[in-house]
Amino acid sequence: MMDFIKPSSGYIEIPHTADRALLVWGKDAETLFINAAKGMYSLLLIHDFEDEMIERVINIREFDQESLLVSFLSLLLLELEEKKLFYDQISIQIKGKNLKGQLIGKKVKNVDREIKAITYNNLKIQNTKNGNEVEIVFDV
């Protein structure tokens, strides 16, 4: 993991030649996942929203925490591409390999950058003395 002063955002973009990569951290799994979602949205350059609020409940079950993270972010990406939905209020609970939660957001009018997929490239959630950290590579 890289050595630098961490911004309060919970994520920072790290160098990658072709794609996009984030270092994300959080005091617990829930914070880590939410910061990863915020980081991913920041890469997409989203702007102009509609006023109507949208709400949905999610339940994801996977075989480990890394898969849970990929599935969670993939779901947000799919909602954005297919339904133009951007969730800025994310409330989740993670127990082992299960995630459940509530997403609140709105419709987006413009997205300037595409993310094709969330990859498993060297994906490993690390437990540190300050919580959790993970590097995520996005195919763009």
């Binding site: 075989f63 898969s67 990929v70 599935s71 993939s74 799919l78 094709k116 997929a117 969330i118 990859t119 498993y120 195919d139």
Partner: peptide, 13 residues
Amino acid sequence: HQICTDYVHDFQM
């Protein structure tokens, strides 16, 4: 993109 995502997921198992 979705086909690759689905199978990279499934092949973890």
